[in-house]
Amino acid sequence: MNNCNGQFKTYFRPVTHVIFDLDGLLLNSEECYHKIDEAVIGQFGKEVPDDLFLKILGYSDLDCAKKIIEICDLPISPKQYAKEVQRFSYLLKDVKLLPGAEKLIRHLVVNNVPIAIATSSGYESVQAKLHNHKELFSLFHHIVMGSSDPEVQYGKPSPDIFLVCAKRFFENPNPEQCLVMEDAPSGVTAANRAGMQVVLVPHPSVTLKERENATLVLNSLLEFKPEDFGLPSF
């Protein structure tokens, strides 16, 4: 069911609920995170590797810290790194919405399609990122924050976060009734393991190989056609 060119197929399994990732899909927060990692890593006289972004894309705060420490050979623990990152969280307050995000969110809400967010980020960073978008994100039924949610035992690519997110909908839908919207290969793997279809809107650096397990690949949320998944059309 994969299409790596961003073109549409005529039929996918109909769904009733939609679960969104946050960073890199709805919010253009990756640039801010790059600045934060640059600042923290720079304190130890190290430079940020060019491919660091792709190696940590979609992972939980702690898993990101572990990978960064290993890749950059930093003399601190993952928890210490996470604390350092929090010192620069003010940079996240100015993140912008990505193209098509607000249009799709409001369309689904107006048409009574239950929506939720499943993000690997923790509570503090989510609150910072949503600072200028509180009204829009209040429209979501709930937000699962993997790095600070006790029910999410393992982060992406494990399916935990999507299964937890699905069961918190009032209707408690089956996994096959949920559509996941993602930007990261680890999120695609997690959605597949949860038994959910997944639309991938990847960063250009994500390889064709990393895109092939998505149900559908798009260049932007602006290309998404809800009716392809049995949802009300725009």
Rank of each mutant, 00 (worst) to 15 (best):
N174G: 00
V164C: 12
E151K: 14
L130R: 04
R168K: 15
H142V: 08
N172D: 06
I143W: 08
L139R: 09
P159Q: 08
L139Q: 14
Q177H: 15
H142T: 02
R168C: 10
D160T: 11
F162R: 07
L139T: 05
A128Y: 09
M145Q: 15
E135H: 13
N174E: 03
V144L: 06
C165W: 09
E135I: 08
E135Q: 15
F137G: 07
F169G: 03
E176T: 04
Q153D: 03
Q177V: 01
H133N: 12
K167E: 13
K156Y: 12
S138H: 10
I143N: 10
P173S: 00
Q153M: 11
K167N: 13
F140P: 13
K134Y: 08
P159T: 03
L163K: 12
F137Q: 05
V144Y: 03
F140K: 02
S148D: 05
L136R: 02
Q177W: 02
C165R: 01
K156F: 07
E151I: 07
H142Y: 04
P175E: 01
L136Q: 01
L130G: 04
D160V: 03
K129W: 02
R168I: 05
G155H: 07
D160K: 09
L136Y: 14
G146A: 11
N132L: 15
N174I: 00
F170R: 15
E135S: 10
E135R: 14
E171H: 13
K129P: 00
G155S: 12
H141K: 11
K167G: 00
S158F: 14
A166Y: 08
L130N: 08
A166W: 08
Y154S: 06
I161F: 08
N172W: 00
H141Q: 10
L136G: 00
E151S: 05
P159Y: 12
S147M: 07
F169V: 07
P157R: 03
A166F: 11
P159F: 06
E135A: 14
F169Q: 12
Y154C: 11
F169C: 06
F170S: 13
D160M: 09
